[in-house]
Design a protein around this nucleic acid. Structure first.
Lengths: 280, 280
DNA sequence: ATCACTTACGGGTGACGTAAAAATC
DNA sequence: GATTTTTACGTCACCCGTAAGTGAT
């Protein structure tokens, strides 16, 4: 029996050329490498190296062994991924979304329908979402368009409409609606993880500046201590009323300020997730 | 990284059904099995078993893991065989022979011609010799016939002739030659490892009995303390004069008492062993 | 002088076996 | 009572890192 760490060390040596460099890569000491290579030769009962006084190189048997080792380690890696992946696929429901709003709506529904599963949700750009869905990294993704792929089926969910969130000080605070055009050129506070919305506001207000905040708490504090306009949507206001931060939320009247979201799953999983799609 | 012994234990458990039986097979204690299986679950971060109070069985993930494990262990085994085999193929010259005489002649020649290699020689029956040659388990085999295979080439070596070895007491001791027919029905002492000769004497003297001795020393002692006839050949007498044991060696006159031996190698190795074949 | 490999030595992790407990058949 | 799994505990193997030595660049 050859323990895996010996194979790992052999491959590292082959990749790095010297024991020292391999030891560095593996975060172990150099003598450990020496010992491991000697042990490997001992187990195989075949000399793997041409040895000079302070020089070491793989001979033909060593190179052959390193090739075998690389393949075996790859098999181990595929075991890890295979078993973990199979487990996750059966015990979690992974949602990927192109915006925060839809996942806020979907997550509680999924939780109530898959009581035995772990529901996870993350944001990603739409290309990665589609790749991830095909790749079985996601069970369901939420997109702002219908992808052109026959192995994917889509269900229209709902629309989400953008507001600008203003303090009473702002000149537009009394309006019942605003347009991108009239808000263009101003400085906005913006949450960093808004998904598709970022592209929409940047395209529609090319002269505006956006101060992106990674941290939601920092965003709230900033919103309460400045008069800079920020954003909200009909969904975020409904789901998290505290997000108002005492501001006045005025809808954009432009058509491009309303996005339609689609839930997409693999066609092969249509049966399994049929009842979920019905509830959207 | 999953160390190989964990995979080995998992496969043993899967094969044996209980931890106790697997532990027996592996010659380890039962608690070691418990720990190893727990560790494996810990590393994979996936439950592999359905656990009852004193009952354990693999779940679907465990079965998948065991399948992976079996394949990985097979890869390791093939690494061991592959590397060792490659080394042996380059550093040894393995002779297989259907009788002891020809290898006595061949071994010193091979030793002198392949000074850098280990010369090994073993006896086997002719079917296994041919299989072993094709299988690269032998570099050269000595047969009593020319095999019908285009990937094998043959060179005629020499003949070996059978004698009966008698004490002066024996009625035939004064003859210059004997026939199988006149010796048939007697009791012979015979060395166990005579290869093709056993079949020859049994076929030609169907009514004789043969007392086979595995140990050469025991054979010699027996020969010196009994009057039972035994065997020798022109080659054994020439190579090991002490084998005479003070007996009178009389050739069989039958044609079937002389065997022609052929050295056979793989055609693809013709170039490498050309000069050796020339010297036979 | 730096780098590369090896040997020597002491330390700590962890795999092991024994023993015992709990539960099932 | 026999079998199976698990936990507890002390032991020991062995893998590791540090230190020191040799030889080459």
């Amino acid at each position: 029996m050859i323990e895996s760490y010996l194979l790992e060390y052999l491959v590292a040596y082959n990749d790095n050329g010297t024991l020292s460099k391999a030891a560095d890569e593996l975060h172990i000491s150099q003598p450990s490498m020496t010992r491991a290579m000697q042990k490997l030769e001992d187990i195989l009962d075949v000399p793997l190296f041409n040895r000079g006084k302070n020089r070491l190189e793989l001979n033909e048997y060593g190179k052959l062994a390193a090739d075998y080792a690389r393949r075996i380690l790859a098999s181990e890696e595929s075991m890890l991924q295979g078993v973990r992946g199979f487990y996750k696929a059966n015990n979690s429901f992974r949602i990927g979304s192109c915006a925060p709003g839809p996942s806020m709506r979907l997550q509680p529904i999924a939780t109530s329908m898959f009581l035995d599963k772990t529901i996870s949700s993350e944001q990603n750009d739409e290309d990665n979402l589609i790749r991830g869905l095909l790749n079985q990294d996601y069970d369901l993704v939420i997109l702002s368009h219908v992808p052109d792929n026959k192995t994917i089926i889509c269900k229209k969910m709902f629309t989400e409409s953008l507001n600008v969130a203003l303090t009473a000080m702002h000149p537009a605070a009394s309006k019942s609606s605003v347009s991108f055009k009239e808000m263009d050129g101003q400085n906005f506070i913006m949450y960093a993880q808004v998904g598709v919305w970022e592209k929409i506001v940047r395209e529609n207000m090319p002269h505006a500046s956006f101060f992106k905040q990674e941290d939601l708490y920092a965003l709230g504090t900033l919103a309460q201590n400045s008069d800079l306009p920020s954003f909200s949507t009909d969904i975020t206001l409904a789901e998290i009323p505290s997000r108002k931060n005492g501001r006045i939320n005025i809808p954009f009247k432009d058509k491009t300020a309303t996005v339609t979201f689609y839930a997409a799953i693999l066609k092969e999983k249509q049966g399994r997730y049929h009842s979920l799609l019905e509830r959207l």
